[in-house]
Design a protein around this nucleic acid. Sequence first.
DNA 1: GCGAACGTTCAGAAATTTCTGAAGACAGGA
DNA 2: TCCTGTCTTCAGAAATTTCTGAACGTTCGC
Lengths: 156, 156
Amino acid sequence: MTGETERRDAAEQLALALVGAGMQRMGARTLAAFMFTEKDSLTAGDLAEELGVSAGSVSGAVRMVAQMGLIERIYVAGSRREHFRMLDNAWTTLYSRQHSVVDDVLRAVEKGVEAVGPGRAHDRLEYMRDFYTFLINEAPVLVERFERQRRGEPRS
Amino acid sequence: MTGETERRDAAEQLALALVGAGMQRMGARTLAAFMFTEKDSLTAGDLAEELGVSAGSVSGAVRMVAQMGLIERIYVAGSRREHFRMLDNAWTTLYSRQHSVVDDVLRAVEKGVEAVGPGRAHDRLEYMRDFYTFLINEAPVLVERFERQRRGEPRS
DNA sequence: GCGAACGTTCAGAAATTTCTGAAGACAGGA
DNA sequence: TCCTGTCTTCAGAAATTTCTGAACGTTCGC
């Protein structure tokens, strides 16, 4: 249907959008490569070639993305190289992870609430705290709802 | 209750957390300053002094934060300076804005779906597209629910 | 029109992030 | 044990982001 060039362009564009969303460049490109491959798994060498970067860069990027829980190492018999595969729930995982960032903000705000006496600032901080708390609680519910809906299950 | 130092420390900590969430440093510090002030409004000069940075930096940061819709210019009679105030709905606004970033990702993914023929990649892209579409749709609902709940209104 | 008070812009400095490539570590086979 | 293929680490290079400060605009009062 489409040429190799179009595929790569689309992958690069996705990577760019992910960078815009706050991801490291190399990690984003790695994830996009997994997104667009037809192969079962990719090795560090595959990635280096596909992305046109050094082995060192790939090593770092893969480590980061793996630790984010988006890809996993798999062991392929008869191959000495390490193979990686993208997890099915990578995107929902990524969404949840972004909420761990929200958690950091929330902790900072809670400290603020304690550090400030009554007044406008205190009120503002409480409002913010409440909203972020709400988000933290609702995010997993949202993801769960998506998954249920996708599996075609009836609403709980 | 607390000293000036504690207040500033807490503000800096919030700024740091916001940077972790992907905000520009200066914008985050500006927002934190608004969060922690007891004043009605702040001028560029106030911010420069509070944050210990140049007028140029403040100008850029204020522009960015204002354009994000988190603060607004207000006109104070008898003052030639421009005053700024944080909007009450700043945090829900910020949350919604983050979803405009999600929108960029979604567009890139949709392009990918078109650019790739049937196969694993196509399936993965579709799954991702569906999840991000779901998020885009649900985010405003979530915010609305928070606001209703906060106003103490009964569940719709 | 002129000066004072503010705000903005922008070129370059400073700081930070990102990438590379070479050296090293490690595992397996001979 | 030594060699080979693969992965990791890390110091420094390159690119990018961020901040400053000086020059320039604008507005207002006189």
